[in-house]
Design a protein around this nucleic acid. Structure first.
Lengths: 336, 336
DNA sequence: GTGAAAGCGCTAACAG
DNA sequence: CTGTTAGCGCTTTCAC
């Protein structure tokens, strides 16, 4: 493996000059630079990045902690992160926690050992105090997930208002008996969407009937099961707001299996606007999270921190959007 | 940042001993070892991994090159890789190519610069000759994608026989006019599935009608569009084998929009067995790829190479499986 | 079983 | 604009 000193020798310059040519070309006279570059080409010299990382103690790598790669919401955000990272010469190390807190702690060590320059969390189940400590010392950004009461840079949408928007849409369509199938309630995201649902009902002088609120786990199956329960009620709902799109498909399936049509007999609104919601039949009305953009922005904030700009330790709330398709009954069925 | 020499000093031993305690504990007397460990704990010493990597010139990191993170087939395989990697103390660096060959070449440099110990490709669009050269020098495994004529360790299913299985299933159900919507034909995977389709027809003395073979791009939209074309034929097909599940949903949507029922008027078989195929309505009969397992096996093969076991440069063909759901008409509609 | 010493390949003062 | 020099923190012979 040819090294810097080999190049230096052959080019009749010092190692320092070769190093400069590589990292600060403008500080080297053009003729010298060209000569060195030529030798580098000729010898097919590849700098030893490991040595460089060690010497500079920076890795140009960031860690992305994900609860579940298989969830398309997370993989879209990951895509956004990867895109922005690549543009800025950073590499992305993947850390799948499978929803286990212990894994989060494990990956924290990578940060502490400076194996990465920063970390983006899509899942923050760890102890808030510990996280607060960590983020004093290392660049950290939170997205998708968020926490109350600690000042950590965060990129999200407003889940409360999104929940309200989804519910209000159903109210405007004339529904008064609207159910909500929530995500796991140990997640703040789920609680906030539920809060929005409640607010919408109350603001429209509708009763909040607790029997119409069922907790799911974001899976199709839970949507199906909870909807089946709801349909067994004496007064079943005429509309459902499901806390994600996959559960919405379960809701629709349950309704169909019960002999009901969607949206004629049951209006359904989902959440996320993943591809599934667009290709399902009927197309699912949903709240769009700007997932790719969330990833982008999160990476941007992280880069600011890495580059020592601490002025910006703020929360970013991105715009969400109601995407109307067939499942709510506000629109005629068509393709696209 | 406390370093090894600090620990050594406080423990009254040499750096060498501390290093041994960390990496070869069995070569250190128990009493010494315990003393050193205690000091390490007490001082909260974190070894500088960058220094270690540099010194040992190994990274314990592998690179996974993915054409598209948003595709669930790839994210499942990635999950399998990540799982196996984690178990063995390896970290996974993500390399999203967005289907651009140039990106593949770019990421190759990481390998050449020894920034990673090995590479798993889920996409090999690069020049075969170059790849062949690379894999002589560095640990590389190919999965999901594959190439003909170069002896690179590969983990896949048999796409030809899978295509045959899918098609034969439709033939057994009594269909004789069976269409195929293929993946992009520049991909060997797509060509092989098509080949299987052809073989099944011929082996059953059915004509191959080229008008029934349409090229898609694995998207819902392409499935929809190609199916719409097929339905406009004078003699439209009564069954369709789509080269992936997402296109199958497009096929079904097109049929419904055309006033047809699936499976009554049109039988459909997909490919991959992603979650979508299970939750779609109707459930889609499909060929299951053992995606997680493919990732596992690929990582296993890579580890063998990294550990210098070159005996095993073989192709692994994993078992596929026909999963029968409603879309083909072989089964009554029910949930699950 | 342990210590001394050399050095991995690069970068960054500092001088000139 | 370029060269000299001194390490970064760890691992690994080689002695003892």
């Amino acid at each position: 493996m040819v090294k810097m000193s080999d190049v230096a020798e052959k080019a009749n310059v010092s190692k320092a000059t070769v190093s400069r040519v590589l990292r600060n070309p403008e500080t080297v006279k053009k003729t010298t630079r060209d000569k060195v570059m030529a030798i580098i080409e000729q010898m097919n010299y590849q700098p030893n990045i490991l040595a460089r990382q060690f010497r500079r103690s920076e890795t140009n790598t960031i860690l992305v902690v994900i609860p579940n790669i298989l969830n398309t919401v997370f993989s879209h955000i990951l895509g956004g992160i990867e895109h922005e990272a690549g543009k800025n010469g950073y590499r992305v190390l993947l850390a799948n926690t499978n929803k286990q807190v212990e894994k989060e702690y494990e990956f924290l060590d990578h940060l502490k050992q400076r194996q990465v320059d920063g970390m983006i969390l899509l899942s923050a189940r760890m102890d808030k105090g510990i996280l607060a400590e960590v983020m004093k010392q290392y660049p950290v950004v939170l997205t998708a997930d968020y926490l109350e009461g600690i000042p950590i840079p965060t990129v999200t949408i407003d889940n409360v208002s999104s929940g309200r928007t989804a519910t209000e849409h159903l109210i405007k369509l004339g529904h008064s008996r609207i159910a909500h199938i929530s995500g796991p309630l140990h997640l703040l995201v789920s609680r906030d969407r539920l809060k929005g649902y409640r607010q919408a009902l109350l603001q429209n002088n509708l009763d909040v009937d607790n029997i119409l609120i069922q907790e799911g786990d974001f899976s199709h199956e839970s949507g199906y099961n909870q909807m089946t329960k709801l349909l067994a009620l004496e007064h079943p709902p005429t509309a459902v707001f499901a806390a994600n799109d996959e559960m919405a498909t379960g809701v629709i399936k349950a309704a169909k299996d019960h002999g009901l049509s969607v949206p004629e007999d049951l209006a359904v609104v989902g959440f996320d606007n993943v591809k599934l919601s667009a290709i399902y039949d009927p197309g699912i009305t949903t709240i769009a999270q700007p997932m790719f953009k969330m990833g982008n922005k999160a990476m941007e904030l992280l880069l600011q921190q890495i580059n020592g700009d601490d002025s910006n330790k703020t929360q970013y709330v991105l715009q969400n959007e109601l995407v109307i398709r067939e499942s709510c009954g506000a629109k005629q069925k068509n393709h696209g």
